[in-house]
């Protein structure tokens, strides 16, 4: 299974990928995680890639190789599209973060990215993770909310996620992250019943 996480520096894509890697190793999978950081910390696009299965070789994902794209930001979902395998899924937040060329009027933000993607990709789940996170009182738990949705989609229930989340975040942040996880998780199940 090839997963591509994409977002903007500071959104917690790397932590999300780390927590998921940890869980997959517990479940006995061979796991490789690849991240590109450095200049990307400073407001640029951040991509992390996670591959798991019985035996994994290459750590990075090429174009048309991702089974699932998890986008923490709307425009980044659009940017990552070439990496999606035919028949693959997109889990995306509707959050919009304007890049500098948009802020200074040199480029236009694709507000309809979710609609465009839904038209050309069969499996797109738009998860309002950042809205949920804000309602919970901390935008930072957006990433764990998305993780919850992803875990549901991947059917990775056989792990004590609450415990794993608790050991991956500062103690005072454990509960809010666990709630965010559950909300993301439940959102996908509700959607599935609808369709």
């Amino acid at each position: 299974m090839n997963l591509l996480f994409t977002g903007v520096g500071g959104q917690g894509t790397i932590l999300t990928t780390k927590i998921l890697s940890e869980a997959l190793v517990h479940m006995g999978y061979d796991v490789k995680m690849s991240e590109i950081h450095g200049m990307s910390q400073r407001g640029g696009t951040v991509n992390t890639q996670l591959k798991y299965g019985t035996k994994i070789y290459a750590p990075n994902i090429g174009e048309a190789e991702a089974d699932i794209i998890v986008a923490f930001e709307k425009a980044e979902a659009l940017r990552a599209l070439p990496f999606l395998k035919k028949g693959g899924s997109i889990v995306m937040d509707e959050r919009e973060i304007y890049s500098m060329p948009v802020l200074i009027g040199q480029a236009e933000y694709p507000h309809d990215a979710d609609e465009i993607l839904s038209k050309c990709v069969e499996h797109v789940s738009v998860v309002p993770a950042s809205r949920i996170a804000e309602e919970l009182g901390n935008i930072k738990v957006q990433n764990i909310c998305l993780l919850g949705a992803l875990v549901k989609l991947l059917e990775l229930q056989d792990i004590n996620w609450d415990a794993l989340i608790a050991q991956s975040v500062p103690p005072r942040m454990a509960e809010i992250n666990q709630i965010a996880f559950k909300k993301g998780y439940d959102l996908i199940s509700a959607k599935k019943e609808l369709t």
Binding site: S40, G44, A75, D112
Partner: peptide
């Protein structure tokens, strides 16, 4: 798709 994401250079 025809639509492309705006560039997001580090700032």
């Amino acid at each position: 798709t025809d639509k492309t994401a705006p560039p997001r250079p580090p700032v």
